[in-house]
């Protein structure tokens, strides 16, 4: 077997094992909370008899291990259970919102990742000179702002001072793609501001590190232009650390943006999770937690795999 295939299979298998372990941790975490779902539904004043009846009805009287595997079996077949508060099927409720989350994250990523790479390369090209300093100062400022401050700043700037966008990012089924894009413009701008600096700094550092190599001197002595040297000779060898930082930021765009969702009233997974945490709706918390974990692990596997494929020594063994 080609060593690269072997490595890929290993990474993916490892990811699956990790996901299984995470599911157990989530289940145990929820289990460790005082009270259970029956208690949460019936409230503090429930009679012991009523609790027992409900537990038997919901299968909560079974041993934890059995319940874990029941839950896991449900997850495998796409059945995440029903929400306690309104009895709605969780899979359905999540499906719609997950789409919104991925749409927002995708839009932000499509802008932020190329922009970060380009800015990082430019900063590396002019390291220590004014373009580098301006890029660093601006991106570090935007990452230092709390998201809600950045969000209100952007709202003030682009809806009040220059009214080009609407302040609320409402999307609903049946909207055209273009209308959706317009709706998410403001949150996308805020998210780009938040994730840009990290990826830009890593790109800059990785390129500068590679710029010390002897083969960069070879390229300089070939009379190539500085930007050609960076793109053709430095960047392909600097890609591995950049990819892992990109993956972390993409994961953040999916799972960590609840504040931005709330500010712009964007109906997505983060808000859904927070709503149900406050209502102690444990099946929903469990389900969303598992999805977030899967996103993290999945993106990191993709990052690992890309870094492996980018390495010519692994791609073309002796």
């Amino acid at each position: 077997m080609h060593p690269i295939v072997k490595l890929l299979v290993q990474r993916i298998a490892l990811g699956l094992v990790l996901l299984l372990a995470v599911s157990a941790v989530i289940f145990l975490g929820v289990e460790a909370l005082p009270g259970d779902t029956a208690q949460a539904i019936l409230g503090q004043s429930a009679t012991p008899q009523a609790l027992e009846n409900l537990r038997a009805q919901m299968g909560l009287d079974q041993p934890a291990l059995t319940r874990y595997f029941n839950w896991l079996g449900g997850v495998m077949t796409g059945d995440l259970g029903k929400a306690l508060t309104n009895g709605v099927d969780i899979s359905q409720a999540i499906g719609q919102r997950l789409g919104n989350t991925l749409f927002l994250a995708g839009c932000a990523a499509v802008i932020a990742v190329p922009l970060a790479l380009i800015l990082g390369a430019v900063a590396a090209r002019y390291a220590g000179r004014w373009p580098d300093k301006v890029i660093s100062a601006v991106t570090l400022t935007t990452i230092s702002l709390p998201e809600f401050v950045a969000a209100y700043f952007v709202i003030y700037l682009l809806t009040i001072l220059f009214p080009v966008f609407q302040p609320v990012a409402m999307v609903f089924p049946g909207m055209s793609f273009w209308a959706k894009l317009q709706a998410v413009a403001l949150p996308v701008i805020v998210l780009v501001m938040v994730v840009l600096a990290h990826m830009m700094r890593m790109t800059r550092a990785a390129i500068l590190n590679v710029m010390q190599s002897a083969y960069i001197e070879t390229a300089e002595l070939k009379g190539l232009s500085p930007m050609t040297i960076i793109w053709k000779h430095a960047f392909p060898n600097a890609i591995a650390p950049v990819i892992s930082v990109v993956a972390i930021n993409l994961a953040y765009l999916v799972v960590g943006v609840v504040v931005v969702e709330v500010v712009f009233s964007y109906n997505a997974l983060g808000q859904y999770l927070v709503d149900h945490v406050t209502k102690r709706d444990l099946p929903v918390v469990q389900a969303v937690g598992l999805i977030f974990a899967a996103v993290y692990i999945g993106l990191n596997i993709i990052a690992d795999v890309t870094a492996i494929i980018a390495n010519p020594r692994l791609r073309h063994p002796k």
């Binding site: 190599s213 002897a214 083969y215 001197e217 070879t218 390229a219 300089e220 002595l221 070939k222 009379g223 190539l224 000779h233 392909p236 060898n237 980018a310 390495n311 010519p312 020594r313």
Partner: peptide
């Protein structure tokens, strides 16, 4: 550079871009 004068270094292994 690279047109009128070219360079051969001591360590070719380090002087080629590995990728």
């Amino acid at each position: 550079r690279g047109r009128e004068v070219t360079y051969v270094s001591q360590s070719a292994a380090a002087s080629f871009n590995p990728s």
